[in-house]
Amino acid sequence: MTSFLQQAFNGLVSGGFYALLALGLAVIFGMLRVVNFAHGALYMLGAFGAVVLSDSLGLGFWWALLIVPLVLAAAGMLVERLLVHRLAALDPLYNFLLTFGIALVCQDLMRMKYGSHSQPYAGAPFPGSLDLGLFTFPTYQVFVLCVAAVVCLAVWLLLTRTRIGTVVRAATERPETTRAFGIDTGRWVTPVFGFGAGLAALAGVLAAPMRAVNSSMGADLIIIVFAVVVIGGLGSIPGAVTAGFLIGMLQALGNLYVPVLSQTSVYLLMAVVLLVRPAGLFGKEEHA
């Protein structure tokens, strides 16, 4: 029982990372119809950002949590304006290639500078564990889980309860109708891209104290996040979050009970979902 709860908790924590990353991908895909292959690189840069702020500027975790997502959101907006935007009218394949290329460049630049071994992060907050009777959890991971849950909820409220959210959702589903209402959908494209990039960076900062910080950390994770997004339904916000937590749990419990399948379970689930519901758990069939 204890090991089950322990693993379930671990699953929720990694699910939190999947959910944050999938959320950013879903928001960007919904608005721009761009699958951002650089999302994993943004996560990696977020983690490195925390390390660099701590090592060279002496700025601790809380500063990193504030500064790094903002800086990378701004960088994302710049990339959207200068590059992604120019390719928007062409076949989506061009933006796949662009963002994939950006991911490779970021990854190799970080490897040139820091090598391929992991960087230690000195600024971890909340040392120690939380004793909950039956089991103990590292306090920091409880914190990460809370942040992930709060951010997912906040994004949901932002999208469903605010004017901006209404416009973004409308522009996502029916861009032409929204424009025919006299609403300028174009001005939200760049901020939404920046927002998605900021979410990836936030996940990266959260990862720095508990995961190995190295140039390939994003590439390893993003493959699973793509599976999460496909399972949840491409572009669906609730789908991305639900599937994120679901897959975190599936992997963790799979590790415990069927270790042989721990690596493949995600893809098995993806295959089943695609066969039964090709649009994903929460996805809608695209109409012409």
């Binding site: 032409e176 109708t177 424009r179 025919a180 209402f181 006299g182 609403i183 300028d184 959908t185 174009g186």
Partner: peptide, 15 residues
């Protein structure tokens, strides 16, 4: 002019 400007100038359309 982009569609949202034309809509704001008082032209509405159905699809």
């Amino acid at each position: 002019q982009p569609p949202e400007h034309i809509a704001r100038l008082g032209v509405a359309r159905s699809f």
